[in-house]
Every structure is written in C-alpha cells, then in structure tokens.
Design a protein around this nucleic acid. Structure first.
Length: 274
DNA sequence: ACCCAGGGGCAAG
DNA sequence: CTTGCCCATGGG
C-alpha cells in the first residue's frame, strides 16, 4: 500500500515556494538542483520525471502519518484542520534554500515569498537541465551579490540580512550540515545567531529544513488561532509565551499540527479577512 | 487612504 | 525578561 499524500496541500501550504502546477495536473519543481515532475494518483505519488528514491525522501513518504495524527489533540479546531489537510507532508527541503527563503519571509504574504524566490532564482540561480525552473542561488552567489541587486528582487530591508547570512554560510563560518548533529535547543540557538533569523524563522527552518517535527513556529496566524481556541486567560499572550506553554500540548509532532492549523485557517479564512 | 503580511533587531522600561 | 518602534514592499 502506497503512503498517502495530498500534493496540493503539501506544495501550497507555505513550507516551499517554487513548485508549479502544470496544465495536465502534474507538479514541476526542483529537488536540490535536479528536475522533478510528480503527480498524485489513486494509489499515491507517481514520479513522472526524476529519481524515485530522491522524490520519496524529499516528500518524506516514510513519515507515518497515522502515528502522527494519533498524537494530535482531539479538539474540534484540530480535527477540522486534520480533515481539511489530511495527507499534507512536511517535506525534507534543502537547509540553505529553506533558511534563505524564510529570511525573506518576514512581514510578507506567501504569494510575495513566492515572487521573491522566483526573482532570486531568475537573477542568481542556474539553469537546470530539462526544466524551465532555475536552481535556488547558492550561498556564494548571494554572498557575492550587492544589496542593491537583492533589493531589486523585491526584498526591501531583508536584502541586508540575506546577504549577511549568505556570507556566513559561504565562508564556512556557519556550517549548516554540521549543525544537523545538534539537539533542538542548540540548533535553534545556532540558527538565531544568523542575521535575519529570530525564533520564528529558526523554528520554520528546523521544521522544514532539519526534520525537527516538534519545532513550533508562531506567526500571526498561529498566534490568533492559539488565542482564540487554546488560551484561557486575560492578558494577550506574546508569541513566545504561546510557544512555550502550548507546543507540548500538540505532542512530539507539534510542527505537523501547527502546519495543519496554519494551512486550514489560511485557506478557509482568506476571503473573509477583507 | 488605510491596513496587514509565516518578524527581527535594537533601545528603553 | 518584556515592550515600542522602525525597517520596505505589495496587495486587498
């Protein structure tokens, strides 16, 4: 039996920003610097182009969704999100691509993050054989770019941070692959030393780029959901207070639960929010 | 015109 | 340890 996957939810939930749906319903993207085309069919994930093993790893088909769901709390809010997002997988995204895109994400909507990612790929990425997409620019490529050129990709004040972090990674001063051996707390601390990376972005990078499924990013959407459905108290809690007091309630895969709540809220309340 | 967006960094309380 | 303010840009 093939593992289930909801491809649209997985690729449009705000964890990765460059996949495109083709006219025939298949999805085209890059796994690292390798072209891939995938399609959702009746039994699971069909690899139209690309290396099946690499695709399976990227889409984390080995994650046991049944066991993950069993750890979710059973309140109405969580069950509604689960019903809506069932099959959404937290993918294994290359760490640098994930880190860089989330540095650009601050105070930006998902569509804007996609635009910036596309502009950066077009301007600083490399062509990929067999694909109309371009690779995400390497740390060296962004380290060598001028702040003005990065601002030209729509980054605004984020340009300085992306450039500075790219320089740290390109020089080897920040060794992302070596950081994989750190425990969660040490990894978060290391990520937060990078320019443009605070607790929220660090948690996103841990969750989407380092397979730390307990990481619990609190953005404006999650903060609102937590305040409305999971917080009994008078004073308005800070994002940090929400993370510290609520992450445990969502279990060892709190990051999964968080992503289901985020995507469900964004898809169902987008229009109602003026 | 006004508001907000997957926030971070820094100064000040 | 918390709060207030600024930082660009784009879309509703």
């Amino acid at each position: 039996m093939e593992p289930e996957i909801n491809l649209r939810a997985t690729l449009e939930c705000g964890q990765v920003f460059h996949w495109q749906e083709r006219d025939d319903g298949a999805w085209e993207g890059l796994i690292g610097n390798v072209h891939a085309v995938v399609r959702e069919n009746a039994v699971g994930l069909e690899v139209v182009q690309g290396d099946p093993a690499a695709v399976a790893r990227y889409f984390a088909l080995d994650h046991d969704l049944g066991r993950i769901y069993a750890g979710f709390p059973r309140d109405a809010t969580m069950l509604a999100a689960l019903d809506f997002c069932r099959g959404l997988r937290i993918i294994r995204q290359p760490a640098w691509e994930c880190l860089a895109t989330f540095i650009t994400s601050s105070m930006k909507q998902v569509t804007h993050i996609r635009q910036m990612s596309h502009a950066l790929r077009a301007r600083f990425g490399r062509g990929v054989r067999g694909s109309r997409l371009r690779s995400y620019p390497s740390p060296a490529a962004l380290a060598a770019a001028s702040e003005e050129d990065l601002r030209g990709c729509g980054l605004g004040y984020r340009a300085k941070n992306l450039r500075a972090t790219a320089q740290r990674v390109a020089s080897g001063e920040a060794d992302l692959e070596a950081w994989r051996q750190l425990d969660d707390a040490a990894l978060r601390e290391a990520l937060c030393t990078l320019p443009g990376v605070g607790r929220k972005v660090a948690n996103c990078v841990m969750l989407f780029g380092f397979e730390r499924c307990g990481a619990f990013p609190v953005d404006t959407w999650i903060a609102r959901i937590m305040r409305e459905h999971y917080w009994r108290g008078r004073a308005k809690p800070t994002p940090l207070a929400l993370e510290r007091r609520l992450a445990k309630r969502f279990g060892p895969h709190a990051g999964y639960a968080q992503q289901y709540l985020f995507h469900h809220a964004r898809m169902t309340q987008r229009r109602a929010r003026r």
